[in-house]
């Protein structure tokens, strides 16, 4: 009898591993191995024609921390995240609540909101170039109607980062709205009716019922927005190239520059590892603290 149970258990285990293996193989090849290789690379010095690569421990990291550009870039990225995440989420939620109510031309409104999402980031950046270009751009044209001087939005350090941030928000808000809209449509109509009977105002209903029920979606969007605030840099190549004077340079762009413009792979690897560590911590917080406070249906 015990033999049978053992055999059955082993069969189940083999079955389980078979089911896991495709994901395990793919993840190992394309995620775990590259991460470890990157970590490994970040511990060696840069190979030049005269000096071969050698083990230097954390020297690449200390170099990085001593590099003022690195800190500028970190600061830029923090501002970028702090602005794009909450603003794009708030706009997405507001648009979704509006597009979910009984308004005329609802289909058109939804499509209009979603359009930026289907544009590739590079195309979107080209579009916005048309807004921002000094003299010819739409913004300047409108400004000149009111007698305002021409502004080089992308060319001056004070405004370059914000110009980039606005493009990102414009691009992301419509995408996030789709998630909110889908979640709103899963909330049964009769909850609103029950709240109406009790005399709850629209605001009370939104705050006490809708927002808590949207919490899982909000969390999902938050994680996506956070990842995007690190990885969404395509438009930098078109709009500012990180300039002027590093004012709009973000971490991933700097990593790219380090690796493919300055050919300093170990430095780029070290920065990559730091980004991975930060994202890892965020994921940890999401799965432990936030998930416990969220009601999943």
């Amino acid at each position: 009898m015990a033999k049978h149970v053992n055999l059955e258990r082993r069969r189940q285990a083999i079955y389980g591993w078979l089911l896991l293996s495709p994901a395990a193989v793919l993840l190992t090849t394309f995620a775990f191995y590259p991460s470890l290789a990157t970590l490994w690379t970040s511990l060696f010095s840069r190979e030049t024609r005269r000096r071969p690569s050698e083990f230097v421990g954390v020297e690449n990291y200390s170099d990085l921390f001593a590099d003022p550009t690195f800190w500028t870039v970190v600061q830029n990225n923090l501002i970028y995240a702090a602005a794009t995440i909450p603003i794009s989420m708030a706009i997405a939620l507001a648009m979704a609540l509006w597009a979910n109510s009984k308004i005329p031309a609802r289909g058109f409104v939804r499509t209009a909101y979603f359009t930026p999402t289907v544009l590739p980031m590079i195309a979107a950046a080209n579009l916005w170039l048309f807004f921002y270009t000094p003299g010819l751009g739409v913004l300047d044209q409108i400004g000149s109607l009111f007698g305002l001087p021409s502004v080089n939005w992308l060319g001056q350090p004070e405004t370059a980062l914000w110009a980039v941030i606005i493009v990102t928000i414009w691009k992301e808000a419509g995408f996030f709205m789709i998630f909110y809209l889908a979640a709103l449509q899963t909330i049964p109509e009769d909850l609103k009716e029950a709240a109406d009977i009790e005399g709850a105002s629209r605001w009370t209903y939104t705050r006490r019922i809708v927002l808590p029920l949207l919490m899982p979606t909000t969390l999902f969007i938050l994680v996506n927005a956070l990842i995007n605030s690190v990885k969404l840099i395509d438009h930098l190549f078109i709009l500012t190239k990180g300039g002027p004077n590093d004012a709009s340079k973000l971490i991933l762009y700097y990593i790219w520059e380090m690796a493919f413009a300055f050919f300093d792979a170990p430095q780029a690897a070290a920065m990559t590892i730091l980004v991975l560590a930060v994202l890892g911590i965020v994921a940890g917080i999401k799965f432990t603290i936030l998930d416990k406070r969220t009601h999943y249906q």
Partner: peptide, 12 residues
């Protein structure tokens, strides 16, 4: 007051 067929309880 009203009792709904689906009960319409707030799930959270």
């Amino acid at each position: 007051s009203m009792v709904f067929q689906s009960y319409a309880l707030f799930p959270h």
